[in-house]
Amino acid sequence: MYSEAELINYCLSKKGAVQEYPFGPDATVMKVGGKMFALIPVSGGQGQVSISLKCDPLIAANLREQHACVQPGYHLNKTHWNTVIADGSLELSDVQMMIDHSYDLVFASLTKAAREAISLRIGGNS
């Protein structure tokens, strides 16, 4: 199993990633260039840890078929978003690859100027 903190810290390691709470204190939203790439409900140590991630639709469907802990995005566009439940059936490294994919999709959707501005910033690892 992995914690909310591990998920948040990994997301924040991505270049230009910021943590916001646009939906209130119960949901951590990770953004790059003003666009969301991850949503992590705040469990406060209570309940199941999960993360919702943007995903290519074909890959999203494939992941849902292969892993019971990968479900259509909760309260999100179910074609483009998956919610991953941290039930221990996936390694943290597998979830980190899904975070990378989500970040890369969102980063690629930014304008060239926005991508260049993020790439020029000091800090971040991606």
Rank of each mutant, 00 (worst) to 15 (best):
M1D: 04
M1T: 05
Y2V: 00
S3L: 08
S3E: 10
S3C: 10
E4A: 08
A5N: 15
E6F: 03
N9C: 12
N9I: 05
C11I: 01
K14M: 13
K15E: 08
A17H: 12
E20Q: 05
P25E: 12
V29I: 09
G33Q: 01
G33C: 03
L39Q: 10
L39K: 10
I40E: 10
I40Y: 11
I40K: 07
P41G: 07
P41D: 10
G45H: 02
V49F: 01
S50F: 07
L53V: 07
L53Y: 08
C55S: 15
I59S: 01
I59G: 00
I59F: 00
A60H: 03
N62T: 13
E65L: 04
H67I: 12
C69Q: 08
V70E: 01
P72N: 09
Y74M: 14
H75A: 15
N77V: 15
K78N: 12
K78Q: 11
T83W: 07
A86Q: 03
S89W: 03
L90N: 05
E91N: 07
L92V: 04
L92H: 01
S93M: 06
Q96T: 02
S102T: 05
Y103T: 01
S109G: 13
S109T: 11
L110D: 09
K112T: 15
A113S: 07
R115F: 11
E116T: 12
L120M: 11
L120I: 03
L120Y: 01
N125C: 11
